[in-house]
Simulated scan of single mutants.
Amino acid sequence: MAEAMAAPRKKRTLILVGLLIVLLAVASSVAVYFYLDARNGSGATDVVEDEAVEPPVPIFVTIQPFTVNLQSDYGDRLLYVGLSLRVDDEQTSAFLNQHMPEVRSRLLMLLSGKSAEELIKPEGKTLMKQQILGLFDDPITTPQPALSIDDVLFSDFIVQ
């Protein structure tokens, strides 16, 4: 008799556990749906805001390639270099193009004091970039507008 009463109770417990699992699955599905729907709604406004902001167009001042004699204990060494300056505004670009002979002269003076051994190494190139940027700390003319030069980019670089 005890077995007869245990069977319906066991059956009822299994049905309750099954219903509980189905209920949890439905509840979690609904929660995930609303969570993803809310996240997609806020993400759509972020995308619209991101698309409205356009990055600034880079401005480059190209310096024609030139050849420089390098200091060396082993004979004649040459550096053939072409570079560009990335600037922030048209005023700086126009000023540098107008005073290009002075810019090239300063670059030639700086680079002719370099040795081939230091320019071959990546650290030497990085140091040279910093020194080229430092060339523009001294005014080219007086008065001179504020120059905003961001970076030095090499287009040609051959040490012979």
Rank of each mutant, 00 (worst) to 15 (best):
I140M: 13
D89W: 08
L133T: 06
L19E: 14
R77L: 03
A27D: 00
L24M: 00
N40G: 04
K11T: 04
T126D: 15
I140K: 12
I21G: 00
V103M: 01
F136R: 14
F154V: 06
S148N: 05
K11G: 03
Y80A: 00
S115T: 15
D37K: 05
E54I: 05
L108A: 13
L85N: 08
R106W: 12
H99I: 01
V57C: 03
P143Q: 06
K10R: 14
F154L: 09
D150I: 09
N69D: 13
I158S: 04
M109E: 15
L78S: 09
K114M: 10
S72E: 11
Q160V: 03
L36I: 04
T142V: 13
V26Q: 01
F157L: 09
D76Q: 12
G113Y: 10
K129G: 06
Y80H: 05
A44H: 12
V22M: 00
V159C: 02
G113M: 06
Q160T: 03
S105Q: 14
T142D: 12
L119H: 12
D46N: 01
L96V: 11
V53A: 01
E54M: 05
D50K: 08
G43F: 10
A146W: 13
I120A: 09
L79S: 10
E54S: 07
V30K: 01
S84C: 06
F60P: 09
T92K: 01
Q144F: 04
M128C: 11
A7Q: 15
E117A: 07
L110V: 14
V57M: 06
L127Q: 15
R86A: 02
D150C: 06
N97F: 13
S148I: 03
P145A: 00
L147I: 06
L16M: 12
L78K: 12
L70A: 09
Q64P: 08
L108T: 15
L19F: 13
L14C: 07
P122I: 04
E118M: 06
L20V: 02
L23P: 03
S112L: 13
E118P: 12
L147V: 07
S42G: 01
E118W: 06
T92I: 00
M100D: 10
L14P: 10
Y35M: 04
M5R: 15
R86L: 05
E3G: 11
Y35V: 05
A116V: 08
P55G: 00
S72D: 15
L119Q: 13
S28V: 03
